[in-house]
Design a protein around this nucleic acid. Structure first.
Lengths: 256, 256
DNA sequence: TATCTTAGTGTCAATGTGACTTGAACGCCA
DNA sequence: TGGCGTTCAAGTCACATTGACACTAAGATA
């Protein structure tokens, strides 16, 4: 009863992106990998892997999701440690799960095949282990946290228009938001600052480009902010995030 | 670099209670145990222990804190998994940390000695490992969560007056609250219901006794509520929670 | 019986928020 | 070239929420 064991320790990650949906709006999607070993061979599962000796938990999450999906997220945060006795049929496994946000252009780099695929968040297949519960909790956390913190820019590039930012909120919260009130709230919060540049190439009045004010400490993780800070500070790859600012090309990004 | 290991897996708990402070108000306190082994021998540390084979994570937290401090909390929730490489000087240890609330009368059962002692939350001694950071994060989580959920009753007995409930908020948030506004907010939230009974034995108008409305789902953990529910539903021991309802004795509880 | 103390109710002003209106600045097209 | 459709951006208004404060109620105490 009191024997000391070292259960297998694994790290998994729930990764979110936004992609163009059927009705013209954006929709949440997440990548799954097909299991090639028992148990649950052939089932879809969250990307992850075992924890190795010389990496801490967040590094393990980054490493495994890069290895399985080629993704480098803009936001990474610990979600929960799952350790129920019956979550794996054979051996005892404790999974420390992270959740992550990637920008749309970064997400395009995924090579989809028979074993790696993006799924719409609320149309998932049967998942291995307790991964369905894990995804539900990650979704709840994303939707809850979006409303009181500044994680929305994890889906976007370095700069963005308020319409793009609003579309993130509308897609995640699954409800339309009033553009005027959204602008008032965002500008009043001090979380975003205008860059002075405008985005041309639209079919209408050119909107201003904003960026997040990094000097405003989000305080959304309290004293632990430094544990994930190295990941949240990773800027988007400049070569893949160019909103056209003075050209005539149409706007890219989540609203594409 | 990629060798698979099974790091030692430990479970620790940050336990909070309220106790009468010097200035008449209540103050937060938490129990620590003295380490009797290297590393950090002699230092104070959070109660905890290794995870055993046939218990899940929350059970391990309950078991270890009962073994080390004799406490059975009224609220128990997972806090965070700490796995930094340098958090223990010798071997790699991943700690899954829980946090808990105990009622004052339950807390009185602790047998304090040279190796177990309650400390005021913001006057802690030097702690072992990264336990100072862990306590800081638990404190932040407690203060943050108190404002949007219904965890305050974890410090109280089955029934309580609104003044007692308000004192919990004032002690945790460290600021005075307007009694009238506090009453309006609490009654408006529907989280508490009047029992009809009153508390006599005070030096003034007898206040009404309230209890928490358990039918109102707090939704403060989203889809995971069932993982900790068995603990949060543990009622206080009836023999130790008798607020005097029709006697002349003075009120017990956090305001004693 | 007067007084003290907290319980409990009510009021008012400031602030925040949702719904809506109006003008501005582009590309587009006749 | 000039109206038209689009979204940007600023402004307005009603209502809900919240903080500060006044006032009455009901006990114990001297």
């Amino acid at each position: 009863m009191s024997e000391v064991v070292s259960p297998n320790l694994a790290v998994s990650t729930v990764i979110f992106r936004l992609r163009p949906g059927a009705d013209g709006t954006s929709e949440l999607a997440l990548p799954l990998v097909r299991r090639i070993r028992a148990p649950y061979e052939g089932r879809w599962a969250l990307p992850g892997g075992p924890l190795t000796a010389h990496e801490d938990l967040a590094q393990a999450a980054s490493r495994t999701l890069l290895a399985t999906t080629s993704l480098q997220p803009r936001y990474l945060e610990q979600l929960y440690a799952f350790g129920q006795l019956d979550r794996s049929p054979d051996e005892r496994v404790v999974s420390i799960v992270y959740w992550a946000l990637v920008a749309s252009d970064e997400a395009e780099r995924t090579i989809e095949n028979d074993n790696v695929r993006w799924f719409v968040a609320d149309e998932l297949p049967e998942l291995a282990f307790d991964h369905k519960l894990i995804v539900e909790y990650a979704l709840w956390r994303l939707r809850t946290k979006l409303e009181y913190s500044q994680i929305a820019h994890g889906f976007l590039g370095e700069t963005f228009t308020l319409a793009q930012l609003r579309e993130v909120y509308e897609a995640v919260l699954q409800k339309p938001l009033d553009p005027g009130n959204f602008r008032r709230t965002m500008e009043g919060s001090g979380a975003v600052v205008a860059t002075g540049e405008r985005l041309s190439g639209t079919r209408h009045r050119p909107p201003q480009l904003y960026k997040y004010d990094t000097s405003v400490n989000p305080a959304d993780q309290g004293p632990l902010s430094h544990l994930t800070a190295p990941c949240t500070l990773v800027p988007a790859n400049p070569s893949t995030t160019s909103f056209r600012t003075t050209t005539h090309a149409s706007a890219s990004g989540v609203s594409a």
